[in-house]
């Protein structure tokens, strides 16, 4: 396995008396989409701001693209692209000028800059808006332009801080497509979000962060399996007897009465357990009125690890 492209050891950050980030460690592999999922105020933005050199490292060690953030911020800056949480576009400049400004700011040679501007405008499909001022663009277009800008300098890592905040559902899906495409072409993505579906659909690995700490990490599947909370809800001709004969079936962890019928809690993959459950009921001659399998969502995972629903 290759060396991590981001390596964070015991990072802490406080604002006066508030601890924003509380001794977190993680490593991001080259080429993956790595996400921080957590409520507002969990420490996501603070972490991203330290990783992108906008805040000084207070405690711990951070390496990005092979450089120590505290010692070589200039090199780190040259190796990364950032899409900030808030809109950071000059409304009075045109799409082309926004990219031109960015390329110049990063000292890109003229020819390369021109070529790259064309490529980026094509990538985010803003050809028709090339010479239109930003003030006339929709929210989704602005976001796409910011992604294009973040990619202007061919960064090794692209940081996305809440990339679809405030976008309509269609624009979100559109933006997700670009993120996947960019990642597919080799750019490592560090993403923060408080949207479960966003983390779920984009990330290779998800870190649930709350109160400045990483409280769970893994792939979406791993996190859901760790819960062991696949649930089969059943209604039968004789619920009391059905519950009785299912109690000792392998994989069944618990049986709880429901509003109608009862629920069987499965410790592993509920989909694989369902046929066995149905077979046993039929074998005992119990009529099945309805059967329903529910697997946990990332919301359930979040509630499980933090003890509450995501805020905001």
């Amino acid at each position: 396995m290759s060396d991590p492209i981001i390596e964070v050891t015991n990072l802490s950050h406080r604002f006066r008396d508030t601890v924003a980030v509380d001794g977190i460690s993680f490593a991001v592999r080259p080429g993956e989409i790595f996400s921080f999922l957590g409520p507002n105020g969990a420490g996501k933005s603070t972490t991203i701001n330290v990783l992108t050199t906008l805040l000084a490292v207070q405690g711990g060690m951070v390496r990005v693209a092979g450089f120590d953030v505290a010692k070589s911020p200039g090199e780190v800056r040259r190796s990364i692209g950032i899409v900030f949480q808030e809109e950071t576009l000059d409304r009075d400049l045109t799409v082309r000028e926004i990219l031109e400004f960015h390329g110049r700011l990063y000292s890109m040679p003229r020819e390369e800059r021109k070529k790259r501007i064309d490529e980026m405008i094509r990538l985010v499909e803003l050809e028709a808006k090339r010479d239109v001022q930003v003030r006339h663009l929709s929210g989704g277009m602005k976001r796409r332009l910011e992604i294009a800008r973040g990619l202007m300098t061919r960064p090794k890592v692209l940081f996305l801080d809440e990339p679809t905040l405030g976008l309509d559902p269609q624009s979100r899906i559109h933006v997700w497509d670009y993120i996947r495409q960019v990642n597919h072409e080799g750019t490592t993505i560090f993403l923060t979000t408080h949207y479960m579906d966003e983390a779920d659909s984009l990330s290779d690995r998800i870190n649930i962060i709350d109160h400045g700490k990483i409280i769970a990490s893994g792939t979406s599947r791993e996190l859901k399996d760790a819960l062991g909370q696949d649930i089969i809800s059943l209604e039968t001709g004789n619920d009391a007897r059905a519950a009785e004969i299912l109690r000792d079936l392998p994989g069944v962890r618990d049986i709880r009465p429901g509003l109608r019928g009862f629920s069987v809690i499965i410790s592993g993959d509920g989909g694989k357990c369902l046929p066995a459950v149905l077979d046993r009921l039929r074998g005992a001659g119990i009529a099945i009125v309805s059967a329903n399998l529910k697997q946990p969502t990332l919301d359930d995972v979040f509630v499980h690890f933090t003890g509450r629903e995501i805020r905001g």
Binding site: T52, T53, L54, G74, R77, R78, I82, F84, E86, E87, T88, L89, D90, H102, L105, Y106, S107, R149
Partner: peptide, 13 residues
């Protein structure tokens, strides 16, 4: 105030 400064401050300039 409009956040545009972030782009500039985060650049190597």
């Amino acid at each position: 105030l409009w956040g545009l400064m972030r782009e500039i401050l985060a650049s190597p300039a």
